[in-house]
Amino acid sequence: MRIYGVTGWKNAGKTGLMERLVADISQRGYTISTLKHAHHDTDVDQPGRDSYRHRAAGAHQVMLSSPNRWALMTELRDQPEPSLADLLPLMTPVDLILVEGYKRAPHPKIEAHRWETGRPLLVDSNPTIRAVASNTVPQNLRVPYFDLDDVPAIADFILAEVGL
């Protein structure tokens, strides 16, 4: 499977870019999945739901199935967080997996950047970043620049990078 990342600081536009890239690339006929790294307090389950109650009771894994989707949740229970390399083989094979986050993982990435965040570009200290998508033109870039809203061009770049 081919993987490509979208990284950047909080509020830099990563999730919006991911959403638009998934729509664009899937409309081109490619199968695409996503893997998002979240912070420690993120929970996909809600208190009071049956699956939450199962986890709260001590279940290591809870699978939820419905006519529209299924989900498998695994409680780490003080075990270390699995690496990206450990998680990727658990995904169903597709043409492309887009990964949000995982700034320091070794896969190639595009950096989403908004000047309003006041944060510096990551590209200057991260050799895995192959391009920058921003709402302002950064100076002295060592990688290609794309307007953050030019999703077709960003998608073209990513697909060429992964050989699709």
Rank of each mutant, 00 (worst) to 15 (best):
G5V: 00
G5F: 03
G5Y: 06
V6I: 15
V6R: 01
V6N: 00
V6E: 00
V6C: 00
T7R: 12
T7S: 15
T7F: 07
G8R: 07
G8C: 03
W9E: 03
W9A: 03
K10V: 06
K10Y: 05
K10T: 07
N11T: 01
A12T: 05
A12P: 00
A12K: 00
G13D: 02
G13V: 04
K14S: 01
K14R: 02
T15G: 10
T15C: 11
T15M: 12
T15P: 08
G16L: 12
G16I: 02
G16H: 06
G16V: 10
G16F: 01
L17E: 05
L17M: 15
L17N: 09
L17Q: 07
L17K: 06
M18F: 06
M18Y: 05
M18G: 00
E19Y: 01
E19G: 01
R20Y: 01
R20D: 11
R20G: 05
R20L: 08
L21E: 04
L21W: 01
L21H: 04
L21P: 01
L21F: 04
L21Y: 02
V22D: 04
A23T: 13
D24R: 12
I25C: 09
I25M: 13
S26D: 05
S26K: 14
Q27E: 15
Q27M: 12
G29M: 09
G29H: 09
G29E: 11
G29Y: 07
Y30R: 07
Y30M: 07
T31I: 03
T31G: 05
T31W: 01
I32M: 12
I32T: 15
I32Y: 04
S33N: 14
S33M: 02
S33I: 04
S33L: 05
L35S: 12
H37Y: 14
H37R: 15
H37S: 14
H37V: 09
A38D: 13
A38I: 05
A38Q: 11
A38Y: 11
H39C: 06
H39G: 14
H39N: 13
H39K: 12
H39W: 03
H40P: 02
H40M: 03
H40G: 05
D41K: 06
T42V: 10
D43I: 00
D43L: 04
V44M: 14
V44C: 08
D45F: 05
D45M: 04
P47D: 04
P47G: 09
G48I: 01
G48K: 10
G48A: 10
R49T: 15
R49A: 13
R49C: 02
D50Q: 12
D50V: 13
S51E: 09
S51H: 09
